[in-house]
Amino acid sequence: MSLTMDTTDTLGGKERNDHILARIGYKRGEHRVTPGLYRVNGPDDKSPVLVTSNYSLSFDAVRSHLKGIAAWVLVLDTKGINVWCAAGKGTFGTDEIVRQVKGTGLEEIVSHRRLILPQLGAPGVKAHEVKERTGFVVEYGPIRAEDIPAYLKDRKATPEMRQVQFPAKDRVVLVPVEWRNYLKLGIPAGLLLVVLAGWFGLGVFLLGYVGSLFFFPLLFPYLPSKKFSIKGMALGALLSLPLLAWSWLGPMPLVEMALVDLAVLLGMMGVVGYVGLNFTGSTPYASRTGVKDEIFRFIPPMVAMSATGLALAVAAGIGIYAGWF
């Protein structure tokens, strides 16, 4: 029994801090727990074995949903990556399961021969091969950790438990990481906009960077089309409306206003369209074929829109200084 580690079914302040840091993308690869076999609530040889990844958010999700349930948690070494992404990569996979089952001496610890895997681990695992190599039968449990208690009652997952969902709660937690991902581009662009266009430039930055990366995940299911790029372009157009209204209310001459408005509309559609396309990897919907198709089909028009928008903005700027309007 020396190979097992103890853990609890409750999360404390330390875990909450770790989760906040993970959600803002601080040291993203370092939210890890030690791989191996964990005891939760004093399991015996008949207790179920639940398999998960060594990303702290995944491990904590599993154990915190084992309230009062005695279980073993087998943590695979997925290098701090969650179950779904690690399965796509193959690190949550057959070889690592075999390695951990053998390394922890699991067959000496439990008398049964069943492993419960999260359903989203399936893209990395050949269940029949795990059986051949370890003698353990793979059972695919529910997608979400919160359904584990219900699943453990009769070892059956309802069709609802087996269908991946992407509710508002799951979408909005991604926002801080989205902001962080575009920081290196967003901050210089924002500064440039403020220097060149003052308050209006700040407005463009707030809507185009802060706003788009917040509203795209939030409004994701409500934006038109199944194509991420079109969803993004639609949001870009929507977010440019306050800026257009602002320019209409101001004292700008008509020609300048037309240039500025067109620049804003095209620029926002191009840039936010790209934001939308890049959101594909954060969702449980995009296929590789679909994404490849979108890259070839929509990146050229997005680049054209952004470039035209930029050119029009430059023309408007030069026009103002040169006193054309």
């Binding site: 796509g88 399936a122 990897g281 296929s287 590789r288 679909g290 890259i295």
Partner: peptide
């Protein structure tokens, strides 16, 4: 495809992430 014991399913599987592909 991974879990079909009869190899009756084929799919060109991969990560549908534009950021990674670009």
């Amino acid at each position: 495809m991974m879990n079909c014991p009869e190899s009756a399913i084929k799919v060109d599987s991969g990560v549908g992430c534009a950021m990674a592909m670009i």
